[in-house]
Design a protein around this nucleic acid. Sequence first.
DNA 1: CGGGTTTAGGAATGTTCAGTCAAGAACGAT
DNA 2: ATCGTTCTTGACTGAACATTCCTAAACCCG
Lengths: 222, 222
Amino acid sequence: MGRPRGFDETEVVRAAAALFARQAYDGVSVDDLVAHLGVHRNSLYKTFGSKRGLYMAALRWHVDNELLPLVTAVGEAPDLPGAARRALAARDGGSPLDLLLMAAAERAPVDPEVAAQVARALNALEETLANRLPGGSPAPGLAHALTSALLGLRLRARTSPQDAGTAGPEPGAAPSRTATSPSGPDTVPSGTGTASPGFVDAEQAAVVLASYFNSTNTDISR
Amino acid sequence: MGRPRGFDETEVVRAAAALFARQAYDGVSVDDLVAHLGVHRNSLYKTFGSKRGLYMAALRWHVDNELLPLVTAVGEAPDLPGAARRALAARDGGSPLDLLLMAAAERAPVDPEVAAQVARALNALEETLANRLPGGSPAPGLAHALTSALLGLRLRARTSPQDAGTAGPEPGAAPSRTATSPSGPDTVPSGTGTASPGFVDAEQAAVVLASYFNSTNTDISR
DNA sequence: CGGGTTTAGGAATGTTCAGTCAAGAACGAT
DNA sequence: ATCGTTCTTGACTGAACATTCCTAAACCCG
């Protein structure tokens, strides 16, 4: 009974997750959501209650349908470096870790429900990594450290200008504004890109790190 | 000539950095800054030009006067685990890494100048760690991975409810609102705290990880 | 003491934000 | 067909936001 939905709820949640992953919670306005999701304001509020409601739905969905499957794939990797590579795999300049990353940095400290979802995903990954470590469970903190390392590597990969994931080269084409240092309504200059002295790929760094703890010895140790 | 400043610019920058470290850029309003810094609106705008101007000043100051000295201290640690411990040391529930963390997650992807400062700090830390690794420079990605691991460990430490750094226990005393799931102006429930199955301290995990790469062998290897 | 200059203070600006309202449109059931 | 229910639509609301204006105060120099 009643008029049928004009949108696919799962599709909306997935698109919202993508937006929140790229721009964080505070970086996405309800207007942005309305514009990119093709759903009008009231439908969002009727369905999810609030911006935070949609965010939580997106986060939960992402943990259940992206992150936990990823963790499973990580657990089924042939060796630890392979597991690391799977964990950091990125398509279209985005990684499944991105939403988790932003949630952990921005929302978890002030929102216990977000913290719970973040913990759920991270603990699953940590447990899976612990099982792939040499001789059962060596030191209790090691899996924790490796999990955090993956997170940190993805964080650092996102740090470069634009978004630019692990994807191919993107020629520097910024919108280029004509703002001088102070004054003017809060804009951001365009140039000033800085590359690392010896550029290191996140995936490759993770593989190097993982190879030190591999039971199936993938020899990279000098 | 002219009326003298009623505030210490360095003090203001330091306080602003602390605020931005705890609540991120978008989480701090100019009103918040005015309230916590004891400086009035116009003085902030006269001195720093914009909210972003103040943020950049705070970030630069923090890199120069907190992070780079920390990197030096890390470089002078007796061994690699000691270096890791110094890097993650936290006082008053806050770490010098916090501002860097938030900058990297929230601002660096959309603000090249922020990205440059983040890169400056991270590259310094990475270089310092590389010099403490066994046999000169083993694999190029290892220092990169360890740097990212420290970042990720701090990120994860911040994830728990409240802010709570490495500081002592804080009984769960949240304001407790009476909001039900949807509706009501976008509030956040209070309960729902989730601890890790086997709780691991960030510092201790970093030490475990670092001990695997120590030249001065601090034996913790299973 | 009186110009010149710089800061302080408080009130205002226009914009953007999350969230709401009231009317209409599309369906199942009767 | 008509009723009740559910979804859609676009305009609307009040609060919060970053930024600016204007007037008064405090200082240095002559």
